Amino acid sequence: MTRKLGGGSLVIATHNEGKLREISALLAPYGLKCISAGSLGLPEPPEDGKTFVDNALIKARAAAEASGLAALADDSGLSVDALGGRPGVYTADWAERQWFEGDPGRDWYMAMGKVEGMLQQLGPDTDRSAAFHCVLAIVWPGGEHEVYEGTCSGSLTWPPRGEMGFGYDPVFVPEGRDQTFAEIDPQEKHSMSHRADAFAKLVADQFGS
């Protein structure tokens, strides 16, 4: 039987305030007060799992154990069929950290170029199918957990198009559309994204009748 979230506080296992705001807005109708692991001063555990599920559970488990509260974590990334599912859990790592105006950031154009270069090496008729994946993991202090997986399928294009997305969005065209995620209005993108799919499953399971 699924363990259910009650009211009260839920730790979001992130140090990213933007992600905290996004998740807080999604869960606000269900009476949950979301607080970030960063605001509690919790350390970030090494994400050394082999799958999205592994990494989401690592982050949620660490936050739940350290805070004594239920914790929610997500892990997401891009898988490319012709590349055997890569970059997968290494999606962010393919965008190596660079220094821009004194702040460390990831070079996503380089990451997109790396994927494109590998596809071009495979030839002009290579399958360009790809999918974004999101895993949401809830862990309670006693160790019980629930996992929800979301997917958004599509294909890769080149060169990058659009200014509204981030990460690999400028080269990802969702199924049934001819625009990249970076060309689609953010609100519309959020409604069809891999994260939206995972959250819909979480809400149905946790808060459905």
Rank of each mutant, 00 (worst) to 15 (best):
A130F: 06
G117T: 09
G105R: 14
L69S: 15
H133W: 11
T157H: 06
K114Q: 14
K114W: 07
A111I: 09
E149K: 09
K59M: 04
M110E: 10
R161E: 15
D127G: 11
T91K: 11
A64S: 13
V89N: 06
D107W: 01
A71T: 06
D81Q: 06
N55W: 04
C134V: 03
P124L: 03
Q120E: 10
V139T: 13
P104H: 02
G117S: 10
S153N: 09
A137K: 01
W158D: 11
V135W: 04
A56V: 01
R86H: 05
D107A: 12
T157S: 04
M118D: 13
F52N: 02
Q120I: 08
G142Q: 07
M118S: 12
G68I: 02
P141Y: 03
A131F: 10
D127L: 04
A95M: 11
L136F: 11
W108L: 02
L83V: 00
D107T: 10
R161A: 12
L83W: 03
A137Y: 07
K114R: 08
G113M: 06
G117V: 09
W158T: 11
V135F: 02
H133L: 07
W140E: 04
F100D: 07
A95C: 10
R106W: 07
F132S: 12
D75S: 13
V115D: 00
W108D: 04
W99H: 15
R86L: 03
A63V: 07
R106L: 15
E144F: 12
M110I: 14
E101I: 08
G150H: 14
I138A: 11
D54F: 01
S76W: 00
V135T: 05
P124Q: 06
M112R: 07
M118H: 13
L119I: 03
S129N: 12
S76G: 00
D81H: 06
E149G: 10
L119A: 01
Y90V: 04
M118F: 09
A71K: 12
Q121S: 13
P160M: 03
E101G: 04
S67K: 08
G143N: 11
L156P: 00
A71S: 03
Y109S: 14
V139M: 14
A130W: 09
V89Y: 01
R161N: 02
T157K: 05
D93K: 08
I58H: 02
I58S: 09
F100S: 15
G150N: 06
L122Q: 12
G68S: 11
S79N: 05
C152H: 14
D107I: 00
V80P: 08
L119H: 00
G143P: 05
D107S: 15
I58W: 07
P160S: 05
H133E: 12
A130P: 02
P141I: 02
L156I: 13
A60H: 02
R106Q: 14
D125R: 11
E116T: 09
L72Y: 12
A95N: 06
G142A: 08
E96I: 03
S67Q: 10
R61K: 08
S155V: 05
V135R: 14
G113P: 09
R128N: 05
P159D: 13
